[in-house]
């Protein structure tokens, strides 16, 4: 069996790559894709901790991961709808152009 710390290392790397994408990409769709990467890193962590915890008969880790699936799907749908709506009013999906709340 591959040990726990390897899974955690891969998940940490994936989370950090996603975080860099969220912070640095200019296109809003790319930012949303990076958010998906971060959510998936958290999912790997949840399932890995579930698998390596002692009472493996319970399914709490898998249930948590399934709920994260649901929330991620909702987030993607609403986020992309907002991006399309912003594109209709400002003709841009670059996050630097959407700065109405900044002064």
């Amino acid at each position: 069996m591959v040990p726990l710390w390897m899974f955690l290392t891969v998940a940490a790397a994936l989370f950090v790559i996603g975080a860099y994408g969220v912070l640095a990409r200019r296109n809003a769709v790319a930012v949303l894709m990076s958010v998906e990467l971060m959510l998936n890193a958290v999912n790997i962590n949840l399932v890995a901790f579930w698998r390596f915890s002692d009472p493996v008969a319970s399914v709490s880790g898998q249930a948590f991961a399934a709920f994260i699936f649901v929330v991620a799907a909702a987030e993607a749908a609403v986020g992309l709808a907002i991006i399309i709506s912003v594109y209709r009013s400002r003709y841009s999906v670059v996050v630097d152009d959407v700065d109405m709340l900044k002064w």
Binding site: A13, L14, I17, G18, Y20, G21, R25, A30, S34, L37
Partner: peptide
Amino acid sequence: LGGAFGVV
């Protein structure tokens, strides 16, 4: 990880 680098 390769896919993640490709995304970003």
